[in-house]
């Protein structure tokens, strides 16, 4: 009986000390950790956080608003399948084509897609997944006009989408074809309106978009394919691990024939067997 108070009080004091120390320790590790954790959660592709996709709406048939006002398109379908497989909801962010590059780099969007051609120059600053579409450039003019080929464009005003591969091709071939001037647009819609209004003579841009557009707009015509051997893919910030994850899913989609299905849905026919829409391809790397 008499020995008891000793033990009890000592144990109490010790546990008191332990609690005190623990409190300090908890605060010590808990406190600075918290901002980190929340920052990581918001930055990282957390399972529940939406997959943010930057795209240039209006780029038919890749991503545009249909008559019902829904965002549709080849790439919208593709990324929807990818997001499903990742188990993440999608969040689309509409922006001008040129803004896609800084936006993936700043992390504002996880990836960008807008029939973006893989180029060496771009790969200096960004990463691409494997291509899913083989493309060329094309010349589009007024259906009723005098121009029926690139040769007819000598001394004429040419228009491009700013900073697109069409823009690059025109700059490189300015002299050769003797274009008098380049007008740059951001987005297909505005460019087409100006073409119809006669603001310039020919529009050089990716052939699938223009062919698709021309289907519904008989007043314009795609008159020449300019073979450039371009390939489209999704664009990521350099070193983003999401690229490899999604690349693997693209391979799966190609092997399952789902990619070909999307192609058929948007172009009315199955893709050629030897194109990157069917064949799984390597991740493009800098040469």
């Amino acid at each position: 009986m008499s020995a008891l108070p000793n033990t009890v009080s000592r144990r109490f004091i010790l546990s008191g000390f332990a609690g005190f120390g623990l409190a300090i320790a908890l605060h010590a590790c808990g406190q600075p950790e918290r901002p980190n954790a929340s920052a990581e959660a918001s930055n990282n592709n957390d399972a529940v956080s939406p997959l943010k996709i930057g795209l240039n709406v209006g780029n038919v048939p890749w991503e545009y608003e249909n008559d019902q006002g829904d965002l549709v398109g080849f790439e919208v379908d593709l990324v929807t399948l990818v997001a499903e497989r990742l188990g993440r909801p999608t969040e689309f962010v509409d922006m001008p084509f040129t803004e896609l590059f800084p936006a993936v780099l700043s992390g504002r969007v996880d990836l960008a897609m807008s029939s973006i051609t893989i180029t060496e120059e771009r790969m200096e600053t960004v990463d691409f997944a494997q291509p899913y579409y083989d493309s060329d450039q094309s010349l589009t003019v007024l259906a009723e006009g005098a121009i029926s080929s690139l040769e007819d464009m000598r001394g004429k005003v040419v228009a491009v989408d700013s900073d697109s591969t069409g823009d690059v091709w025109v700059q490189e071939n300015m002299e050769g074809y003797g274009f008098s001037e380049i007008i740059r647009y951001e987005g297909l819609t505005a460019a087409m309106m100006d073409l119809k209004a006669g603001q310039y003579d020919g529009y050089i841009s990716d052939i699938p978009a223009l062919l698709y557009y021309a289907k519904d707009h008989p007043e314009i015509a795609v008159v020449e394919r300019i073979p450039t051997g371009e390939q489209y893919s999704m664009m990521f910030a350099k070193g983003n691990p999401l690229r490899d994850e999604i690349n693997a899913l693209i391979t799966e989609l190609k092997e399952a024939g789902q990619m070909a299905e999307i192609h058929t849905r948007w172009f009315g026919r199955a893709p050629d067997a030897n194109t990157s829409t069917v064949q799984a391809a390597d991740i493009p790397t800098l040469r």
Partner: peptide, 27 residues
Amino acid sequence: SPTYLRLFRFSIELTEFVEQAEEESLR
């Protein structure tokens, strides 16, 4: 030119980081 346009886009994109920094400061 696309060069100037790109420069412009990049500088606008800086806003994203300004916001991040402000959030950090808030935290």
